[in-house]
Each structure stands twice: as C-alpha cells, then as structure tokens.
Amino acid sequence: MSTKLSIGVYAYEHTEALLDGRVTVDGVDATFETAPLVSDIFRRAVEGHYDLAEFGLTYFLRTFDLDDAPFLALPILPILPNRNFRHSAIFVNTAGGIVKPQDLAGRTVGEFALYGHDAGIWPKGILADEYGVTPDQCRWVIGGTNHPIPAFDWVPQPVPDGVDVRHAEDGQTLGAMLESGEIDALISVDVPQAVLDGSPKVARLFPDHEAVERDYYRRTGIFPPMHIIAIRRELAHRPGLARAVYDAFTQAKVLAERKYLDDATKQHMSVITPWFSTLFEENRRLLGDDWWPYGVAANRKAIDTFLRYHHEQGLSKRKLTCEDIFVPELLDT
C-alpha cells in the first residue's frame, strides 16, 4: 500500500511535470497543491497543512530555534526561479547621494516582508563581506514593496540587539516611500513599481548588476539559493521516502532543463524573448549544462554561506550546518 502525502509547491516550469502528473513519486500517492502566492505555501506548511512543502530558507531555519523543530530539508535547491543573484535586489533613491555600497551606512533601508527575508539575507551578507556594511549600520523599515502587507505573525521574527527595525505604517508601501525619499534604499524580492515605470527617482544600487553578479559567480561559485523542500520530521526517517521525493523533483527539473537544451538546435523558437539563444549560450558557458543543480554536494558552499549569514545577522541562535538541516539519507546527494 502506497504512502499518502500532501505536497505544497509553487507552479514553476521545473515543477510543472509534478503538478500535471507527468512525473510521479515512486511508491507514494502524492497530492500536489499550489497557491497564488508562494508565501501562502510557507504559511500553510507552518500551520501543518502539508507533509512536505516548499519553504523559504529563512522561514525554515527560524523553526530550528523552536523547542520542537518540526521540519528537515530535502536538498532540492532551489525549488523556484528565485535562485537569483541578489545584487539586483538593492534599490536606492537617486537623490539621496548613494552611489556605492558603502554609502548605505547610516541610512534608512526598507526590506520586504520581514527583517531577513530570503532575498535580503544574501545582499546583506554580501554587503558585509565585500563592502564592510553591516546591518547594524542602517535603520530598517519592514513592509510590502508595491502593496501594503501586515507583519508575518506566523513565523518567528528575531531582531538582533543593536539593530533598529520597525514595520511600515498601515497603508504604506516601501516602493512609494523610496520614491518619495522617506527611505533611502530598499532590499526587496519584488521590483518597485517606480523602476518598472521608468521613474528617474529610483534606481538599482548596481546599475550594471548583471556584470557584477556574473563576476560574483566566477569568483565564488555561488548561485544563491532561496528555497528548499521541507519534510515533517516524523516522515523524514521513513526508509526510502525522502529519496523517492527527491528523485521525482530531480526528474521534473531535468525535463525542464532538457527542453532548453533541445530547443537550442532551433534557436529556441518556442520562446518569445528576442536574442534568448544568445543569453542561453552565455549562461551555459558560465553555469554549465546543469545550471540548476540539486543535491548537497553541488550546493554545500552556497548553503554554508547562507547559514553563516543567517547566524551573523541574528536570525539563528547558533550556526547550523548542512548535517543539521538535511535529511540524513540525502546527505550523499
């Protein structure tokens, strides 16, 4: 008799084959669910709605400070297109005199959703490592970028001593505050509407962010992951279960990668983005044929770096390791 599992995951091209049934989990009767917002999946996971679920790394890691941490991770990294280089996630008010990273010191900076969201931890860590700007040198305002959002009260929200953090007022958006100059900068997974509209009042801190991010990858080998698949601990040690799920997610991801590799022969005629094949060739030269790797070995340096940042930024009581967070059965992946 097969095991029944409920699995929550966002609808991406590399999970499409799981959601539409082309790929199944061996020996498991799996029900896949998705949601309009990926944060809804995180919240439902915390509330016990799923057996396995996509989880933002910081949301997942914060549960380790609970008395009874409910999850372990599968090394499916990352599960969404938010495996992004995050230099491009830092925005500034162009009238504020911020022209280099060091100019952020002493400024008021907005951050999307919570202090230390996944797309914020990476740039904060990079700012500290490479430019000497640490979070305690700034004042922080938390909120929604283009739409007001309440505080995420369903997840622990630690704030380290010596760091000034407040939530935006009801009805305020960080994007509007940045455009008006009420805040000096913004770190956000969402692009401010002012940037999308071409406003001269808001720009990225790194104008040529692609070149900066490609250089970062060449130097570090890190393609920053954002999310994992979390499994409830009572299921994590069932022999073969975690590996069956891991293998299914890997198969679905390989199908998505293979489509791009196969379509290169026809210059990606199915993609409407001009010059996409040129971009694909450039990315392939830099990132290789498996540009979206799963498994511990391929991601250990990136995960270790994120775990260090998470602890240094006061979001974990102790510095965790891959051995702490991943299902033991999959540490050999």
Rank of each mutant, 00 (worst) to 15 (best):
A119I: 14
L18F: 04
D67I: 11
F55C: 03
L330P: 04
D324S: 05
E169L: 10
R214K: 11
T250S: 12
A151Q: 13
F276N: 15
A194W: 09
G21K: 10
V46Y: 03
L72D: 00
P78F: 05
I142R: 00
D290N: 15
F306E: 03
V254C: 09
T265D: 04
P158C: 04
G143Y: 09
S2V: 15
D208E: 11
I149H: 05
S180W: 02
A244S: 15
I142F: 15
T63M: 12
P148G: 11
T34Y: 01
Y12C: 01
A248C: 02
A264Y: 07
Y246L: 02
V191I: 13
L74W: 14
V25P: 14
Y309T: 10
L261A: 05
M269R: 12
A302I: 13
L72G: 00
A242G: 09
P207S: 03
D170S: 11
V202K: 01
L235Y: 06
G48K: 12
D118P: 01
A230W: 13
W291V: 11
L196M: 09
W122K: 09
T134G: 04
Y217V: 14
E16A: 12
H310I: 09
D262L: 12
N93K: 04
K319G: 05
T250A: 06
A264I: 10
T273M: 13
A105D: 09
A230H: 15
F42A: 02
T134R: 15
V155F: 04
G132F: 08
R243K: 06
H310L: 12
H227I: 14
R300C: 10
S199M: 06
L72T: 01
R62M: 13
I79C: 10
L205E: 14
P158S: 01
H227S: 12
A128E: 10
D262R: 12
E312A: 11
F91N: 06
L331T: 07
I149W: 02
D26I: 10
L77E: 05
A256M: 13
P274F: 08
Y131N: 00
G181K: 12
L104M: 11
G240V: 13
L235E: 04
H49F: 08
H167N: 06
L5C: 01
V155Q: 07
T321I: 10
K253C: 07
D262H: 12
P148T: 15
V327Y: 09
L66N: 00
S2D: 04
P70M: 07
R232D: 03
P207D: 09
A242K: 02
H227W: 02
H117Y: 10
N84G: 13
G171H: 05
T94H: 04
T108H: 03
S316G: 04
I149P: 14
L196G: 00
T273C: 07
